[in-house]
Amino acid sequence: MQPTPPIATLPVARRKAQPKFIIGGVLFAAALVLLMATAFTSTAQYFYTVDELLAHRAELGTRSVRATGAVVGDTITVNPETLEIRFEMAHLPDEREVTDLAAALHAAVVDPNAARVMVVYVGPKPDLLKNEAQAIVSGRFAADGVFYADELLLKCPSHYEEAAAGTPAPHTLTGAATPAP
């Protein structure tokens, strides 16, 4: 069926685009790109695993960087006077190589050979900061090799959902098996 345009929209005289609107649009786009580029170059951070973080430590200097790893529960200390939190973050493989996050976090924490970095953060202890949580920190190295984070985000897979289509972690399930209907 050929589309039949209703009367109201029968061919409209085609007009050339007006230069003042094109110039306005181009100027706006240029300003936007400039704004984005300026903000981007002054705020963009590399996002590293602990291995990459340690490998790039020298060249990073005191530049701000983002990193992720597994929180080692035994190492968490809190100074109640200053609210200074210290913990070690163990190397967690790249997210794309991980299918079961909970298992990868557990493996990272128990592996004695996994690279670790000491993280310091000042603030109230986040509710999700605990053993085998995934930490995402943003901050910089100090001369003593400690990573001073000014931002600390935490993910705790067991408290949202476990790997969606995978096997539910058996240790969290206790129940009775009944014959299939």
């Binding site: 903000a39 981007f40 002054s42 705020t43 963009a44 951070q45 590399y46 996002f47 590293y48 990459e52 983002r66 943003s138 931002e151």
Partner: peptide
Amino acid sequence: SQITVGPP
């Protein structure tokens, strides 16, 4: 390598 931007 991942490059991220945050709230700033």
